[in-house]
Computed example of a mutant assay.
Amino acid sequence: MTARLSELSQEAEHLRISRKTLLSLAEADPAPAEPDAPRLFGFDHPYYQQILTVFGQAEGSLRARDLAPAMGLPLTPNGIQNVRAKLKRLASRRILVETEPGLFTQPRP
């Protein structure tokens, strides 16, 4: 029984040392750089970041049908409707502009 307690005590000491080492390494490393696409409050789903990335590379307006394949989604009615709903949400927050029904673009500065 005392041998097992001694082993557990050694393991606890090793864990304490490992924790201390990891904490010191975490403090020494700077925070990772933010990704190029801006992080938007309330738009944490990766699809929103993909949409903004595609719009950043596009030279004009896009429809949901254009975005679905660029995001790796199938061209099914459900897939297109999911993208359209996200585009409408971004437009309602004025992150994108719906220039005509179903056609979206980034606002000009």
Rank of each mutant, 00 (worst) to 15 (best):
R93K: 08
Q49E: 14
T105M: 14
A12E: 00
V83C: 14
K20W: 05
P74V: 01
L40N: 02
Q57N: 14
A91K: 08
E98P: 09
R19T: 13
S61K: 04
E59F: 08
G72M: 09
I80Q: 06
R94V: 03
I17P: 00
L22K: 06
R39L: 11
K86L: 10
A37C: 03
G56I: 05
S6P: 00
D29E: 11
T76Q: 05
E100K: 15
R84C: 00
Q81H: 08
K88A: 13
L25M: 14
A64T: 12
R89L: 14
I51H: 06
R65Q: 15
E11I: 02
Q50N: 12
R84T: 01
F104R: 07
L103F: 06
L96I: 02
T99M: 04
M71Q: 13
T105S: 15
L67F: 05
R39H: 09
A37G: 00
R93C: 08
R19P: 00
A37R: 01
A26I: 08
V83P: 10
A58N: 03
A26T: 07
L96N: 01
G72H: 11
E27H: 03
M71S: 12
A58S: 13
N78D: 07
N78R: 09
A28M: 07
G60C: 10
E11N: 01
S92F: 09
A64P: 11
V54A: 15
G42C: 12
L90S: 05
A26W: 06
P74M: 01
A31V: 13
T76S: 12
P38M: 09
I80E: 08
D36L: 14
V97L: 07
P77Y: 01
Q106F: 02
S6K: 13
I51D: 06
S18V: 04
V97K: 04
L87S: 10
G42P: 09
L40M: 13
D36F: 12
L103K: 11
V54S: 12
E98A: 05
E11A: 03
P35E: 09
R65C: 02
G79E: 02
L40S: 07
P46W: 13
D36H: 09
N82S: 14
H14Y: 04
V97C: 03
L103C: 07
F55V: 10
